[in-house]
């Protein structure tokens, strides 16, 4: 029997494979066109529509949008009460992000470096579990936990530590009748809700730091804190940045939590929700919605300049 140098084609699959082998670009094109279309039309398209809306203005009485180009709506962003909203939101997002980072690091570090086998599974379960239950349920639960007649106040009174809560609630800017009506309550719930989004990328980043880096650092005479600041943190920074992008932008855009927990002062997300949903002021809502986009762009630029992505 003489064997041939080539095997016979078995049908369409072989022909297609051959085609893609000869023209590798074709397969790539086929694979990325649908998602690109999705991204282009649905995402960028809606973003463009949003931008367009923000250059319209609203007839203040009838609530009908006037479709003429104007910067008036952007001017409104600079009214004192709207600037308040923006500053309040950015401040909240920044503190929430910082708190998430500080809380998430030890957890992520433990998971990445020490947890093995069942501990690892327990870690993933513990971090992901809160993500499986309804977001609203969690927020309402927190409203009850933090309420004046809720479990935290009850426990504080029972242990004689009620003065701590009272002291906290008398700090200017954090005033409230209870944790549930104080901006501090809003902060706590934000931190709880977004924490997993910080832990997971951090853990992924820490897992990619080889153990030998840490040993090398110790070998060269670094204390553990020196190792943390000069090796671990810089190498985990892309993960920290990724996590902070989540927590920061999610806080910037959220409109449920400040509605349920806190002192009713508006945040950007709530303002957007009420302006477009309730007040029908889509242009101002759109202008407000552009703010987080700009803030995130600035944030990413600063992060890049600080070298956050150098270790990527």
């Amino acid at each position: 029997m003489t064997s041939r140098a080539t095997l016979p084609s078995r049908g369409l699959a072989d022909q297609l494979t051959g085609l893609f082998w000869r023209r590798p670009g074709l397969l790539l094109l086929l694979l990325i066109t649908p998602p690109l279309l999705w991204l282009g039309v649905v995402y960028l398209g809606s973003l463009a529509a949003l931008l367009l809306q923000s250059f319209y203005s609203i007839d203040e009485f009838s609530g009908v949008v006037k479709e003429e180009f104007t910067l008036k709506t952007y001017g409104e962003l600079f009214r004192a009460q709207n600037l308040d909203i923006i500053l309040r939101t950015v401040l909240m997002a920044a503190t929430v992000t910082l708190a998430c980072a500080v809380l998430a690091f030890p957890i992520a570090y433990f998971a990445a470096r020490y947890a093995r086998g069942p501990w690892k599974a327990a870690f993933y379960l513990g971090v992901m579990l809160p993500l499986w239950s309804s977001y609203l349920v969690k927020v309402y639960a927190w409203k009850l936990i933090l309420a004046k007649e809720g479990i935290v106040t009850w426990a504080a009174e029972g242990t004689g530590t009620g003065f701590l809560i009272d002291g906290l609630l008398s700090i200017p800017g954090l005033e409230g009748a209870s944790l549930s009506t104080s901006p501090f309550g809003t902060f706590l719930v934000f931190v709880y809700i977004w924490l997993p989004y910080m832990i997971l990328p951090m853990q992924a980043a820490l897992e990619r730091v080889p153990n030998s880096m840490l040993e090398a650092s110790a070998d060269l005479g670094a204390t553990q804190s020196q190792t943390f600041w000069t090796v671990i943190l810089p190498l985990a920074l892309p993960g920290v940045i990724a996590g902070s992008i989540f927590t920061f932008s999610l806080t910037l855009g959220d409109y449920i939590i400040p509605q349920i927990v806190g002192d009713s002062a508006r945040f950007i997300g709530l303002a957007v929700y009420q302006l477009q949903g309730t007040a029908g002021n889509t242009p101002l809502a759109a202008a407000f919605a552009v703010v987080p986009i700009l803030i995130m762009l600035v944030y990413l630029t600063l992060a890049k300049r600080a070298g956050a992505f150098d270790a990527l």
């Binding site: 203040e60 409104e76 009214r79 004192a80 009460q81 709207n82 308040d84 002062a265 508006r266 303002a271």
Partner: peptide, 29 residues
């Protein structure tokens, strides 16, 4: 509320200002 009210043309504060000022009041301003 509309600006042209029983107190005269443009004499009253219209609703859109109620909206933005009330947001300000709740925001502590």
């Amino acid at each position: 509320p509309v600006s042209n009210c029983s107190q005269g043309e443009g004499a009253c504060v219209p609703y859109y200002r109620w909206v933005s000022d009330y947001i300000g009041v709740i925001g502590g301003r």
